[in-house]
Design a protein around this nucleic acid. Structure first.
Length: 554
RNA sequence: GGAUCUGUGGCUUAGCCUGGAUAUAGCGCCGGGCUUCUAACCCGGAUGCCAGGGGUUCGAAUCCCCUCAGAUCCGCCA
C-alpha cells in the first residue's frame, strides 16, 4: 500500500512538473510525503517557489483526487497527507499473517557471517557480526530472496596449528562440564604463552602448517578434532542466539578439491602476478600500495588464496554474495574484491562493522582478554529471571524461565543491532542489563500487551476506521514496515529495523494509554481491536525479523 | 607516515548516501500519572554554537577541503 501510494504521488509530480527528480521524501511531522521540487523549479523558471508550489497544488489535486491523498502547501513545500482509504488498505494488509513479506525475487543470495576462527568461544565482538548477519539474512528472506547462510570455517590456519600443538604438548585437562570452545581457548591461550617464551616452537608450528597443506592424514585428524570441538561450542552459542547457519564451509575443502590450486594457476597467468619465492598480486591499479600475497615462499598457501577459491564457488552457485566482516578486514576484503574482478568474477558485497571493545581496551582471544557471548547471555538471563520473578510471581517455574530466556536473547541482540554498524562501541554491562525503553523487552512488552488485549476481547468484527490522533499515527507506522524491509535489503543497514520496531512500540504504547479498547463500545471497540490486531501482528513480524522472540506474555 | 571509519545535550544514540520547514529518541535530572485493557508503561519540563575552521549553495548536521581527537588496518596471520 505504501509503495503504490508513493508511486502515485511521484508519478503525479513528474507529470505536472516534467522533472525527472521530483525531490520527494518523508514529510516528517508535516505530512506523509513532502516535495521540495518548487525550490528547483524556482531557479529554472525564475519565479517565487511558494507561487510555484501553489500552482502545482491545483494540478496535483486533479491527479490524486482518486487516491485518497490530500495536498497542502506551506510556502514552497508541497505536503501530501494520506487519507482514510490508505489507512484502510494498510490495516487489511497488516492483519494478514507474515505481513511485510515482499514478492519472491528469484535471486539466490549467499550471506556469510560470523566465520570466527575456531580457536575459542564467540565473544561480544564476534556476535556483533552474528547479529548483523543473522538480521540481514532474516530481512533478505522477508524481502523475497532465496537466502543461504554460510559460516566459513578457517580449519587450516596458523591458529589451529597452535591449538593442535597445545593439545599434543601441554596436557591441559578439560574442566568438568566445560564447553569445547572454552576448552580450546584455554589451550590456545597457554600455547601462545609458550610460543612467546620459546621461539623455537614456531618451527614446529610451521611443520604442522606444511603437513596440513599436503593433506597428511594424522595432521588432518588432529586439526579436525580441535576444530570440531570448538565449532560445536560455537554452534551451541549461535543456536541460543537464534542465529543459525544452514551451511558450514570448510576452507580445507577448497584445497582438497583442487579449486584453490586452479585459482592460483589462473592468477599466475595474470599480468599483475608476481612470482619471486612467493606468489603475490599487484593491485596498485586499485589504489592498494601493498601486494596481496597468496602463497608463501615455502609453498604453502595463505588464507587469502583459499578465500578466493571459496568466493569463486559462491559466484558459481549464487546470484549475490554478501559477507559480513569486521573493520579489521577492510583492506583484505577490498583486495579480495579487486582480485576477483581481475579474474573476471563477480566480487561479494561486503558489510563492514566497526569494533566492539572493552572499557579496558580491545579484545583478544589469544591473550584470553574477552567477554564470551555465553557469559554475557548467562548474566543477562539471570537479570531477566529476577525481573520476571518479581513481576509475575504467579507463573510456573517453567514459564518464568522461558520468558527470561526470550527476554535475555532479545536484549542481547537488540543492544547490538540498534547501533549503526559504522560506529565503534565500548561494551557496557549497565546498558546490556537495562530492559527499559530502547530495548528488546520494551518492544516485546508492547507485543505481549496487544496479545493480552486480543485474548481478553474475544471475537470481534473487523472495522477499518482509525479516528484518533494516536490511531492514525500508529496505522501509518504499521504501513511503513514493508518499506523498511525493502530499504534495509537495498542499503544493508539493519539497525534501521531496530529503530523502526522501537518507534512502532512507542506509538502502540501511546495509543494504549489514550484509547481504551476493551471498555469501548460498538464500532469504536471493533475498530480499535482491529488496530490492536494489526499492530500486534506487525510487532511480531518486526521482532521475528530481528531474531527476537515475540512472546505472548511476560 | 599512508588508508578507512567515527565525532550530534552530562552519557548513549537517529538523521548524513538522496541538502530544505522548530535536529530523533533513550538514560540521567526536575515535576506529574496505577480502585482503569500487564506501570518492562505514559505525560510534561530543563539541557545542543550537530568536534573546530574554511568553502559550495537561495539554503549545510547532511556535499567538498583543512585541522584536531578516537577506532581499525598497512604480516610469507586469519
Amino acid at each position: 500500500m505504501y509503495f503504490e501510494t508513493y508511486k502515485a504521488v511521484e508519478d503525479a509530480l513528474k507529470k505536472v512538473t516534467g522533472e525527472d527528480d521530483v525531490l520527494l521524501g518523508d514529510g516528517g511531522e508535516h505530512a506523509d510525503l513532502a516535495s521540495t521540487v518548487a525550490f528547483a523549479l524556482a531557479k529554472k523558471r525564475k519565479e517565487n517557489p511558494a507561487k510555484i508550489a501553489a500552482d502545482l497544488k491545483a494540478e496535483l489535486d486533479k491527479e490524486l483526487a482518486s487516491k485518497g491523498v490530500s495536498i497542502e502547501t506551506k510556502g514552497p513545500y508541497i505536503n501530501f497527507v494520506f487519507g482514510g482509504e490508505y489507512l484502510k488498505g494498510i490495516l487489511k494488509e497488516a492483519l494478514k499473517p507474515g505481513y511485510g513479506q515482499l514478492p519472491a525475487k528469484n535471486v539466490r543470495v549467499c550471506l556469510e557471517h560470523t566465520s570466527a576462527n575456531p580457536n575459542g568461544p564467540l565473544h561480544v565482538g564476534h556476535i556483533r557480526n552474528s547479529v548483523i548477519g543473522d538480521t540481514l539474512a532474516r530481512v533478505y528472506r522477508k524481502a523475497g530472496y532465496n537466502t543461504d547462510v554460510h559460516y566459513y570455517v578457517n580449519d587450516m590456519g596458523r591458529q589451529i596449528a597452535i591449538v593442535s600443538w597445545g593439545f599434543d604438548n601441554l596436557g591441559i585437562a578439560r574442566k568438568e562440564g566445560e564447553k569445547g570452545d572454552r576448552y580450546v581457548a584455554d589451550v590456545y591461550v597457554e600455547a601462545n604463552v609458550r610460543l612467546n617464551a620459546d621461539p623455537s616452537i614456531k618451527e614446529e608450528i610451521d611443520r604442522r602448517m606444511a603437513l596440513i597443506e599436503q593433506g597428511d592424514a594424522e595432521m588432518v585428524k588432529k586439526f579436525r578434532e580441535a576444530v570440531i570441538l570448538c565449532l560445536d561450542g560455537i554452534k551451541a552459542t549461535l543456536k541460543e542466539m537464534n542465529a543459525p547457519h544452514n551451511r558450514f564451509m570448510f576452507e580445507s575443502d577448497f584445497v582438497r578439491n583442487k579449486s584453490m590450486i586452479n585459482v592460483l594457476k589462473r592468477i599466475e597467468a595474470l599480468p599483475q602476478a608476481k612470482q619471486d619465492g612467493t606468489l603475490s598480486i599487484d593491485l596498485s591499479e586499485f589504489g592498494f600500495e601493498k601486494e596481496y600475497v597468496l602463497r608463501r615462499s615455502d609453498g604453502t598457501s595463505v588464507y587469502a588464496a583459499r578465500d578466493l577459491a571459496y568466493h569463486e564457488w559462491k559466484g558459481a552457485n549464487y546470484d549475490r554474495a554478501i559477507d559480513i566482516l569486521g573493520a579489521d578486514h577492510k583492506l583484505i576484503g577490498r583486495q579480495l574484491q579487486a582480485t576477483l574482478k581481475l579474474l573476471g568474477d563477480v566480487p561479494p558485497e561486503i558489510v563492514f562493522f566497526e569494533f566492539v571493545s572493552l572499557p579496558e581496551g580491545s579484545m583478544s582471544t589469544r591473550a584470553g582478554k574477552f567477554i564470551s557471548a555465553d557469559d554475557l547471555i548467562d548474566e543477562v538471563r539471570k537479570r531477566a529471571y529476577e525481573e520476571v520473578n518479581l513481576r509475575r510471581p504467579e507463573l510456573s517455574e517453567e514459564e518464568k524461565r522461558s520468558i527470561a530466556e526470550s527476554v535475555a536473547i532479545g536484549a542481547v541482540r537488540y543492544d547490538i543491532i540498534r547501533v549503526s554498524q559504522e560506529k565503534s562501541t565500548v561494551f557496557d554491562w549497565k546498558e546490556a542489563l537495562d530492559f527499559e525503553k530502547q530495548s528488546a523487552p520494551y518492544i516485546q512488552y508492547a507485543h505481549a500487551r496487544a496479545c493480552s488485549i486480543l485474548e481478553k476481547a474475544g471475537d470481534f468484527k473487523e472495522v477499518f476506521a482509525p479516528e484518533t490522533e494516536q490511531e492514525i499515527a500508529l496505522v501509518k507506522k504499521i504501513g511503513m514496515f514493508p518499506k523498511v524491509i525493502d530499504e534495509i535489503s537495498r542499503d544493508l543497514r539493519p539497525h534501521v529495523l531496530a529503530i523502526y520496531a522501537r518507534e512502532l512500540a512507542d506509538l502502540f504504547n501511546s495509543f494504549y494509554r489514550y484509547n481504551p479498547v476493551i471498555k469501548a463500545e460498538g464500532e469504536v471497540r471493533d475498530s480499535r481491536l482491529t488496530i490492536v490486531k494489526a499492530a500486534g501482528n506487525t510487532l511480531r513480524e518486526a521482532l521475528t525479523t530481528l531474531g527476537i522472540d515475540a512472546i505472548k506474555s511476560m
